[in-house]
Amino acid sequence: MTTTLVDESDLVYHEDDPRVVPLLKEVEHSGAAAVTIDSVSKVFTGRHGKVAALDNISLSVTPGEFVCLLGASGCGKSTLLNLITRLDVPTSGTVGTIGRPALMFQESALFPWLTAGQNIGLALKYAGVPKKQSAAEIDGLLDLVRLSGTADRRVHELSGGQRQRVALARALGQNSQVLLMDEPFAALDAITRDVMHDELTRVWKETGNSIIFVTHNVREAVRLGQRVVLLSSRPGRVVGEWKVNIKGPRTIEHPAVGALAAEITLRLREEIASHARS
């Protein structure tokens, strides 16, 4: 397993430049990990024989850590999320999480027959929150995603960005320490997505959840994550890891974000090109 490194002497950034740190070995963390994926492989048996979706993936996410999973099509990210949420079982290896992880999708996947508040209330109910506290918790969660006073709105009365924020509030309502996000902002326009990045960062800092954020968007991964993990395609393997170390306010336009994104994109392109039929 190799990770291309930018020759740092070639780059002239200001002092806050990203440190590109290859993590070739699993980091030894002190204390229990929030998510432990240990040598997980998944093989599907289809009509044309066996297809390996995931090949020997190991990943550990510490409590409170924000990890972005990056990969092209066929990197098995849906399979991996299904394994973490226990919708499916690995062919080999083990997956462990603390508690039941919450999951946010690309579509808001809110139930249209319920109001925004009722959607969150359903998550609370099955997270074991007593009915008496439910209303107060719903208001608190809506405040957290800056949607105070919209509890009685129907899903169709909300904009795309508002729906994703309600979906985030619902996911947080599960009171889970682990939040999985499956390209949650991919369907939003650039400005809304930019605002959502800020909001997610703020919410993450306030709640202290561990987040695994899956995306195709390299800049988004660098903008959000503390760590970016690059997966190969068919089968999905971890081919690179970068620790993002950018000090100060981080925006999608930040030069250091761009620089690290360029570095990761290079690696991603190599990986995709290797699949071309010669």
């Binding site: 740190v21 993590l23 800020d198 960062t201 703020r202 620790k243 993002v244 170390n245 100060g248």
Partner: peptide, 13 residues
């Protein structure tokens, strides 16, 4: 690996 503590926005826009 562990020398970076502040890895996110210090201030919100």
């Amino acid at each position: 690996l562990d020398d970076s503590v502040i890895t996110q926005d210090e201030v919100e826009r």
